[in-house]
Design a protein around this nucleic acid. Structure first.
Lengths: 347, 347
DNA sequence: GTTCTTGTTGGTCATCTGTGTCCCACGTCC
DNA sequence: GGACGTGGGACACAGATGACCAACAAGAAC
């Protein structure tokens, strides 16, 4: 157990050697030639005293803190941030790094976010992860450039910073594909109204998937609303009121799908008997708990957090050149999570 | 903007004074007598060079890092952890402290949690917050005692560590009270099966509230299941199948309430017309998005995080003696959040 | 047998970036 | 001319690291 009051000096005295020797044996430096007996003396003395290295002093000397800064938007409003943090934490822990977390708001001023980054820089973090709550184009504080940094779940407005984002296109294709595969030919899309990459890319994937399947993708029904439960409800009411009522529904996210469930229930449509539904996000609290369970597409938050951390550490340790990766964002897959909301359409 | 490469030494050279003087000026030490002109020279030099203090070196010298360690259980599985972190982050930021976060698992071995705490100690955090995912009795690693620590959302098995927990009793009373107030006389409770304080305390509060209202608390119907949506569904099916079917239902948490909603829908009971429901937790994703919105009791996670941080910093700065507060856990209120799931019973 | 080389084993000292105590130089005032 | 006030610098210290140096014994050269 690390004891705050014991330093390398105390160990040296206890073992009857110099502090240098203690440092050498404890760090197992290759060039140090030290007799096995001395090694043992030092090690057991350290053990007995409960010596733990003072990482601050180490960091000061070596110019490496072994700490990564993570500025995360809106830590508490979605479970997404939690999964990014978890991925980052586990990747960091596995390589002996720690995480300093600062919360910021998606709507915070550039200046306040600059101050957040500055707080991390003053503490001499080795690198910085900048995570946003949802995939978008984000303006980054300039001081982020002074240490290796990776952007999680967004791309930078100015470009040229390494970023990792979800595969919107592939995810949407998987979702629509699951409906087509089940045999649906009348498929609708309930979309978001925000101007974010996901809105555009999912819509486009929706249309091309239908077209590729020999259906008229351009004519397929699409209704847009705010990406909340009530928006999903409204949009679903409209889309299900059409004469050529779709038998398959792709929803922008799980919350909107939850709204669609209610709309279907009100119209007396059973899921998946009368209507198949597929969502996006895999918010477990919703997707797994709806009845029937919602088939949806998982956003790779954990994986993005881990990927970003892994590569950030590589960069810190000089194993990678981040500027090379900065040209294009890295895209991580969005796997389909099958539950029970898709069935073949009634004949 | 903090520039990593600029030290106090560079400022001293630029201003034509000694490093001591720079330190004195920048820290505004009271005993230093320095002419206004020198002050200005130093300050503008620091400004120009983009000097930022090296918190590591400061910490090494002053034996204060200004960092708090937060070990949090299961960061990603519930939104609860996020709210604790947010409360802690904002309280810490307000007082100039930073947060080092380590994730652990509720089921992790004592040894691995000891290692987590050790990682924080090696980094010489000034204090530690230990947050659990739900209110219970937790066994803490012994090395937690070596710096000031506060336990969030649990009490320690051994006792004698300052802790802050939610007011289970008061919250449950508020929930049941809301049903009684609306005029319900046949009220049931859907409880959890886990052996945690909340299970016992909410049950007891339920019974005493009824009794205090002149009803037969001991005879009131209670059904227990696992605290998930499907458990809530099962329990609700049973409780609603009784001859003296309750018109008001208190659910152990929002997830179980969600299950109760489905059971009610299947039985053709409308909420709140035929059945009033009240939950616990205020998981927004569920409570706000059910239809009708679920009246529930909010767990003060943000407040507990903030309270714990505030008092931890007080202890670190010698303004409080934590051992005095360790005698009894501090209890924070659980306010009722009114939505639309409670109405008067049909006459 | 004495000095020199060489390998072994560890220690010395500067360094990382600041902080804080103590001390010094210089004027002034009675 | 000694006490005192003012402005600022020297220096030790916090806890480590690492390049380089030193002591010593064994064997080699003379």
């Amino acid at each position: 157990m690390t004891n705050k009051n014991i330093g390398i000096k105390d160990v040296a005295v206890a073992a009857g050697v110099s502090v240098t020797t203690v440092s050498h044996v404890l760090n197992e430096v290759s060039y140090a030639r030290i007799s096995p007996e001395t090694r043992d003396k030092v090690k057991s003395a350290a053990e007995q005293l409960g010596y733990g290295p003072n990482r601050l002093a180490q960091a000061l000397r070596t110019q490496r803190t072994g700490m990564l800064g993570l500025v995360s938007e809106d830590i508490a409003t979605t479970p997404h941030a939690g999964r990014i943090i978890l991925g980052a934490d586990e990747a960091a822990k596995a390589r002996g790094y720690g995480l300093m977390i600062i919360n910021t708001s998606g709507s915070a001023s550039l200046e306040s976010r600059r101050a957040d980054v500055d707080a991390l820089l003053e503490r001499r973090v080795d690198g910085i992860l900048y995570a946003t709550m949802y995939h978008r184009n984000v303006e980054l504080p300039a001081n982020l450039g002074s240490v290796p940094s990776v952007l999680v779940d967004s791309v930078a407005k100015g470009g040229n910073i390494t970023a990792v984002i979800p595969d919107e296109d592939g995810g949407a294709r998987a979702a629509v594909g699951a409906l087509l595969e089940a045999g649906h030919t009348r498929v609708g899309f309930i979309n978001n109204t925000d101007d974010v990459p996901a809105t555009r890319e999912r819509l486009q994937a929706f249309r091309t998937m239908l077209t590729e399947a020999g259906l008229d993708g351009d004519a397929a029904p699409v209704e847009s609303e705010v990406s909340e439960v009530h928006g999903g409800y409204e949009a679903a009411r409209r889309i299900l009121a059409r004469e050529d009522r779709p038998t398959g529904l792709f929803c922008y996210n799980d919350r909107m799908a939850m709204g669609a469930y209610r709309a279907a229930a009100e119209l007396g449509l059973s899921i998946p008997g009368d209507l198949s539904v597929v969502g996006f996000d895999d918010q477990e609290l919703i997707a797994a708990n709806l009845h029937p369970g919602l088939t949806t597409v998982a956003l790779p938050h954990y994986e993005m957090g881990a990927w970003a951390t892994e590569h950030l550490i590589d960069a810190v340790e000089g194993k990678t050149d981040l500027t090379l990766m900065a040209l294009h964002p890295t895209i991580l897959g969005c796997p389909l999570v099958r539950r029970d909301s898709i069935a073949a359409p009634r004949p």
